[in-house]
Every structure is written in structure tokens, then in C-alpha cells.
């Protein structure tokens, strides 16, 4: 099964605005999602230069879907949503 890609922006702005808290997924992801995700730390994805900028950071992309003002809660919810969709398609 293909893993869900969680791209965490680790540019300066996103990092200061809270990306480290989402990096905690590396050590302490909830059991149901731990094996289904691949965490990728990326340098600035340039979302901070558009729209309302870095104030909407930290930015995370889950399988390409953008999450603004990302928190652990939001990211985990998105991952679960995608897993549910995948599992449905597979049965």
C-alpha cells in the first residue's frame, strides 16, 4: 500500500510558527496512522509568499492537499480522512 506523504515545511517562518510540533509525528504518531504515513521535511514550499503569507503558517501538505495554520490535530484529521477514503476504495 502506498504511504500517505506528509510534507512538513521547515522553512524559517513555518518552523518558528510551529512546524516542530507537527514534526512530533515522527516519534509519537497515533497507532492507527503510524505505519501509513511518510514524513518528509522540506525547505520552504513558498506558500508564505502568497495570500496572507507566513501568518497562515505553518504549512503542511498531506498527499498534496494544503493545510494552513497546521496543528497536529488538523494534520492527523486529514490523514485519517485520506486513510478512510483509501480503505473504502480498496474494499
Amino acid at each position: 500500500m502506498e504511504k500517505i506523504e506528509v510534507k512538513i515545511c521547515a522553512g524559517t517562518a513555518c518552523f518558528v510558527m510551529g512546524a516542530p510540533q507537527i514534526q512530533a509525528l515522527e516519534f509519537s504518531a497515533p497507532e492507527d496512522i503510524a505505519d501509513r504515513i511518510e514524513i518528509v521535511e522540506v525547505r520552504c514550499m513558498n506558500h508564505c509568499n502568497k495570500g496572507s503569507g507566513y501568518n497562515k503558517g505553518p504549512f503542511v501538505e498531506v498527499n498534496g492537499e494544503l493545510i494552513e495554520e497546521a496543528t497536529m490535530e488538523k494534520v492527523v484529521a486529514k490523514i485519517r480522512e485520506l486513510i478512510a477514503k483509501e480503505d473504502e476504495e480498496n474494499c
Binding site: T12, A13, F15, C44, Y54
Partner: peptide, 16 residues
């Protein structure tokens, strides 16, 4: 460090 971080962000300094 948090305050220095805020200075980087507010002054738009990208460390990379």
C-alpha cells in the same frame, strides 16, 4: 530563541 525566531520571520530573513 523564540524572540530571535520572531525577528527572523517579521524581518523576512530566510535562514536557508
Amino acid at each position: 530563541f523564540e524572540e530571535i525566531g520572531a525577528m527572523f520571520v517579521g524581518a523576512k530573513v530566510e535562514i536557508a
